[in-house]
Amino acid sequence: MKFPALLARASTPMDRLVMGITALAIVVSGVTAHGKPGKQAVVFRDNRPVLTLPLSQDTKKELAGRLGPVTIQVEQGRVRLLEYQSPRMIGTRTGWIQGAGRTTACVPCGVLVRVEGQPENTPDQGFDAVSE
């Protein structure tokens, strides 16, 4: 049986309404989440900012995650997270990110990388609302 026919047979009008509304909400939130190109990457370990890396300088840093070492690599204005001991390797498989507001994380490692958009020499304005 072809997929559209199966979907038509298996779903109710209410199901299709829910599918449409949720798909639209996800697309809209995904589009609005895309920011301008970032200026720096802030690396968090257990809610503490432990590294700030300008995206204009290619570099590679290693820090200790909960499950082992985690590498943060900056190259050509992008940043990526490389974990080695994570069950699903979501951080590594996310690949490079560069837009302001984009995030990559290895949850089991307790490491999160967030691209910030503000100029490199201004104080960070983004952490006042974060609760421990």
Binding site: A33, D46, N47, T103, A105, V107, L112, R114, V130, E132
Partner: peptide, 10 residues
Amino acid sequence: IIGHAGIVAL
């Protein structure tokens, strides 16, 4: 676990 609300961006 991460301890940072920034993961909501994902």
